[in-house]
């Protein structure tokens, strides 16, 4: 399956592209042939200077996508192209380290991602020595200082001497971004970078991503379960449900005219006092663990619009009203000739 978004805007060569990307996990012991489908048939495009949000509930496959893109997991099927080159060809330790320098990850837990016994300066220096081996010690320090200043941690020289416990959660998350930034990355994989932070601090980290994208030309894959924060920073949005893309497109377009019933559910869940007061019956469902799935829409058990065909045919992503806006639903985005 090809990504129509990419071909529609062909003048922007994609920075990273996935083709039918799939990752299954074998579960249930040695003799079991149960396979958990964490990600199925994902076609995703990220362009230079673009923030793409991947949105979905826990278990929908978001972290698996990040780990596939970071080359922590190998795909079960499909391919990842970075600047046109297949990651299958990125094999040697040197190449992998160089790739991870260009596509670093920022993790959810700012408390776990820094070693408590080392200073911030030490952590930044070690990372740089690994990913930018040609730099001298002086150059590494200059780069670390530049990165700390770019994420708003100043005076940078003093920050270098600090230990993680001397910093707040928001500051530690900024250190995570500074580390990624010091590698001069093209694309940062940010896996729920704000979900463990206080609401009052989150907005600063989101603003930081937007600024780094604008000023330094870095692309971001922003992973979140909060569609409101995705709207705030992302140019495009990919809504995942149980390992498959439910809907994707330009952020404002998807939010103004959500097509997939699941996107509508996510939108209705945003805690927002500005929203009309509708305290409707709670949706108490959760995404299923997808083990050896048959055909059919994975959202059907929770879907208020499900019809017979939803249980037998997997809906494909089809173009909605606007180019690049696609949804996978037999009822709200039927393929031509599929349903009367």
């Amino acid at each position: 399956m090809t990504d129509l978004t990419a071909s529609a805007i062909a003048d922007h060569a994609p920075l990273l592209q996935t083709v039918g990307l799939t990752r299954h996990f074998r579960i249930g012991g040695l003799f079991s042939n149960a396979k958990l489908h964490a990600v199925d048939d994902l076609s995703l495009t990220i362009r230079p200077r673009e923030i793409v949000a991947v949105v979905g509930e826990s278990g929908s496959g978001k972290s698996t996508i990040a780990r596939l893109l970071a080359k922590v997991y190998e795909p079960t099927d499909g391919d990842i192209l970075f600047r046109g080159r297949s990651l299958h060809d990125v094999k040697s330790r040197r190449d992998v380290l160089a790739y991870r320098g260009q596509v670093p990850m920022v993790l959810q837990d700012p408390f776990a991602s820094l070693n408590p016994v080392h200073t911030i300066g030490y952590a930044l220096d070690r990372g740089l020595a690994l990913h930018q081996p040609t730099l001298t010690a002086t150059e590494r320090e200059a780069e670390a200082i530049r990165a700390l200043e770019a994420v708003g941690l100043s005076p940078a020289r003093q920050v270098l001497a600090k230990y993680p416990h001397e910093m707040s959660g928001g500051q530690r998350q900024r250190v995570g971004f500074a580390q990624a930034l010091s590698y001069k990355p093209k694309l940062v994989l940010a896996d729920e970078p704000v979900s463990m932070l206080d609401v009052s601090i989150r907005i600063g980290v989101l603003n930081l991503m937007a600024r780094l994208c604008e000023e330094e030309g870095i692309s971001f894959l922003y992973i979140t379960h909060d569609i409101a924060s995705a709207r705030y920073v992302a140019h495009r949005i990919v809504v995942m449900y149980a390992g498959r893309v439910a809907e994707t497109g330009p952020t404002e377009e998807v939010l103004r005219r959500p097509v997939h019933p699941y996107t509508r559910l996510l939108l209705s869940a945003v805690p927002d006092p500005k929203a009309p007061i509708t305290i409707t019956a709670a949706d108490t469902g959760e995404p299923p663990r997808v083990v050896n799935p048959g055909p059919g829409c994975r959202f059907r058990q929770r879907c208020p619009l499900a019809i017979a065909i939803c249980a037998t045919v997997t809906p494909d992503l089809t173009e909605a009203v606007v180019p690049g806006h696609m949804a996978a639903c037999h009822v709200t985005a039927p393929e031509a000739g599929m349903v009367a």
Partner: peptide
């Protein structure tokens, strides 16, 4: 007012938010 200026909305026009400086 700072707390209320800290969370993005999915409704209405998109506005830049500042949050609360410092800790």
């Amino acid at each position: 007012r700072g707390l209320l200026d800290s969370f993005p909305s999915v409704y209405g026009p998109k506005v830049a938010l500042k949050g609360i400086p410092g800790s």
